[in-house]
Amino acid sequence: MEMGNDVALSVRNLKTYIYTNNRCNRALDGVSFEIRQGKTLCIVGESGCGKSVTAASIMQLLPTLSRIEDGEITYHGPDGPVRIDALERDGAKMRAIRGKEIAMIFQDPMTALNPVYSIGFQIKEMLRYHTSLGRKDRHSKAIDLLRSMGIPLPERRVDEYPHLYSGGMRQRAMIAIAMSCNPRILIADEPTTALDVTIQAQIFELMDTLKRENGTAIMLITHDMGVVAELADDVAVMYMGNIVEAGPVGKVLRKPVHPYTRALLDSIPVLGRGKDQEIKAIPGQTPDPYNRPTGCQFADRCAYRVSACDEMPPETMVADDHRVMCWRYQEFMADAAE
């Protein structure tokens, strides 16, 4: 992937390790990707593959016992590039980016909002730290934000507490908080996992509108391939701390060249094929993060394993915007071309 002018955030060879009881989990083991302005990057993968750690690394919201060991996170802001990984976690510079330039919404809107403060307070808090608006302006801005998120009666709802909101409305309120300072990047960590399917569609539609109207770059973490097909411009497939395949959504979903991507796509039940359709679950389990295979992390579960897989495969560009980590990619490419 060439570095263009439209890149909002680039991550290079990021290594984030988490330490517990003197053991080290190499949660991210050399991850590289770019988020393009006004585009949606979907990061997919199983639980524990490092999706959320990636998001936390960018926001510098990692748990205390974890550290960015190596690599670069560069935010391409209006004032030139900023190396996020070099900033102090809770320093003023990081805080100025967090929330204002890069905002985040979380998985469970039921617990992500503070129950003892009104929704309005929690929106205005953001405006207070990142804008110069006065008290009254902040209040009317909060109402406007709720209205644009499709919350009915925002003038009244603004003073209500989270427990009076439904799940979908809470996630809208959460997005209102995240979008309040017009961030250049919005990171959404499985924003609809805790919501009903009908509400999911509404939330995604809302995010898509925001992307188109404000040019916000979105990094969407999900494990739902349907969502990827619907929303993504770019996809990165993660497995055990590596991006095993990345590229534009059309190429990755239609012509996947990594066996893991293929296995993921094969494991989705298809509507209309009836209840007798064969769903190919991926055999085996993800390896113990503290006791990883030395070579390709997916080798143990891979149907195409060869002896070369005992070594970690390099990241290989199969097209100028399509990248894979697999020794046998040429065979899969030939296969995909048929």
């Binding site: 926001m59 919201l61 805080r95 980016i97 929330g99 979380f106 730290y129």
Partner: peptide, 8 residues
């Protein structure tokens, strides 16, 4: 975490 993510 939400509060932290606001940059406060």
């Amino acid at each position: 975490r939400t509060a932290r993510s606001k940059g406060m």
